[in-house]
Design a protein around this nucleic acid. Sequence first.
DNA 1: CACTTAGACTTAACACTGTTAACTAAAGCT
DNA 2: AGCTTTAGTTAACAGTGTTAAGTCTAAGTG
Lengths: 204, 204
Amino acid sequence: MGVQERRARQRQELRQEILEAARDLFVREGFENVSMRKVADRIEYSPTTIYLYFQDKADLLDSVCVETLAKLDARLQALRDATSDPLERLKRGFRAYVEFGLEYPNDYRVAFLTEFKASAEPPRELRCRAMGQKTFDHLRTGVAECIRQGIFAPRDVEAVSQSLWAAMHGITSLFILHPRFPWIDRDTLITAMIDIVFQGLRPA
Amino acid sequence: MGVQERRARQRQELRQEILEAARDLFVREGFENVSMRKVADRIEYSPTTIYLYFQDKADLLDSVCVETLAKLDARLQALRDATSDPLERLKRGFRAYVEFGLEYPNDYRVAFLTEFKASAEPPRELRCRAMGQKTFDHLRTGVAECIRQGIFAPRDVEAVSQSLWAAMHGITSLFILHPRFPWIDRDTLITAMIDIVFQGLRPA
DNA sequence: CACTTAGACTTAACACTGTTAACTAAAGCT
DNA sequence: AGCTTTAGTTAACAGTGTTAAGTCTAAGTG
């Protein structure tokens, strides 16, 4: 019975190898500039081998994306555990989110700036969405806590959470997509945005 | 001498025809799902004819994008002329921007959500950027006016303007790129975002 | 040990893509 | 009439994602 286990393990290993090669290439050259053949070259297998481990290119993208979101989630989680004040926690989370996106722009692009083509039913995308929602949940509970403690004016938790996400994503994506726009200093802008938004959330 | 004029006019006409076909297809099917051959089919010319009028596909994209920005700019301009109160003007501009993006999601995608590949020097992109900056200028002067009149707390005009753009763009792009996320009602979210941000900009 | 079967992997091919070079045909000018 | 410019086309190249068919090896079975 050890045979099947070994085979399963080897299968898993190659899958992971493909995943890492793909991630590396995606991040380095951008998703749409990476062909299946390039990934195959990198791992020294034939292009079609990839299709034995992933449904198609979008599935490969999705799998890479899941890993990215896990990484972001871990970072936010760590930061959360290290901060007790709920307002401070949200502010730092905000900054960490943007900085994560700027640190790994291609990862961010893949995870948040790429449209998921409507794939037949939700085999793909589901995992990715589940992952994203988990991260979003952290934001939501943070907002709820701030409102409960009276740090924020009473508002709809969902509306505030989604607004905060949009603000974070707005900065991150604009920086990534339009690097030649005459931006002011990044940190200054992030700080300004945080100031404005959290000022606006305080009780009157 | 009328000959050259006629030729120039015909040239312009065909160019416009290509542009409209491309815009229509881009908007309907998304930029990367439209091939040069599809555009050519639509106008009933050979694919290579397009290259007599546009440098390459990115140039075609850029030209469509310029038109889009002009349309957005016109809308914002009209709204600006119709509103005297500077705060109200900014708020309505905010809403109009997002609604424009949601009304023409593929146009928005093309203009704001597509990365400009680094083309040798700036033949392309320059026009587009100039256009975008013009629109951004409206935002900037609106913000400056609000600060001058004491409607906003004194802050760096550029920081506020860029933050506002990021907020608008954040909502718009998330709606477009992640339509399956469990968003609350669109208008409610836009309103919430406007409330939060402009509340945060008021003097203490 | 010989033989079949299952699995992993590859080769060859299809139908596309953006783009270029070389060609044709017509209109204008002298 | 002959030459030149211009507009447009055809054919081709190198690349893409993806599938169907084939190969080769390792495991299981008489």
